[in-house]
């Protein structure tokens, strides 16, 4: 049975390299996914993800164990990504410039394990369309979408990570969903029979 975050943190603070490694391996994918979703640039995302863990481990002694470690880690990751965006002044991409060949979007495309080449292509197209649609959202909406619909965080946790009121988080998610629906519908993705 996997050790809890609190137990790993306690062991890490006692100097256990295995505990540090376990924490990284447990959260490397979600952290990288969140940061990549925000900055939309692979190399930068990897650097920021590494920076996130370094900051977290540097402040691990001050972490309050009654808090949820994942939320705390996501908060550090989100702040790092937003700071990077501000430094680079990256704006929301126009939809027409985002396509399936962009390296950052390829990370979110379905793999080869599908029924047939035709359906694999269709799944890949859908994945690319979804990734492009999310990439076209505002940064705060992208964050909310990743945390809610990929990482599965509750509204309250997202509000804590993004340091926003609960109502604002719900508004962001509502608007993001609507925008995604409009974007996909405009791209030809319609519900069958309707």
């Amino acid at each position: 049975m996997a050790a809890s975050d609190q137990r790993l943190i306690a062991e890490a603070l006692r100097g256990s390299e295995d505990a540090y490694r376990a924490l990284v391996e447990r959260y490397q994918r979600p952290v990288l996914g969140l940061v990549l979703r925000i900055v939309r640039e692979r190399g930068l995302a990897e650097d920021l993800a590494q920076e996130t863990f370094v900051k977290a481990f540097g402040a691990l002694a001050t972490f309050q164990v009654e808090r949820k470690f994942s939320s705390w880690l996501f908060k550090i990751a989100h702040n790092a990504a937003i700071d990077a965006l501000r430094r680079r002044r990256l704006d929301t991409l126009p939809l027409e410039t985002a396509d399936a060949d962009r390296p950052d979007l390829l990370d979110f495309l379905p793999g080869p394990a599908t029924d047939s080449p035709a359906t694999a292509l269709e799944a890949r197209d859908l994945g690319a369309a979804l990734a492009a649609a999310i990439a076209a959202l505002k940064p705060e909406h992208r964050s909310a979408v990743e945390l809610r619909f990929v990482q599965g965080l509750a509204y309250e946790e997202i509000a804590d990570v993004l340091d926003l009121p609960l109502g604002t988080v719900k508004t962001h998610l509502h608007r993001a969903r609507k925008k995604l629906m409009e974007t996909l519908s405009a791209g030809g993705w319609q519900p069958a029979g309707g």
Partner: peptide
């Protein structure tokens, strides 16, 4: 839908 796609 989003979790059906492979993670980063």
């Amino acid at each position: 839908l989003l979790t059906a796609l492979p993670p980063a």
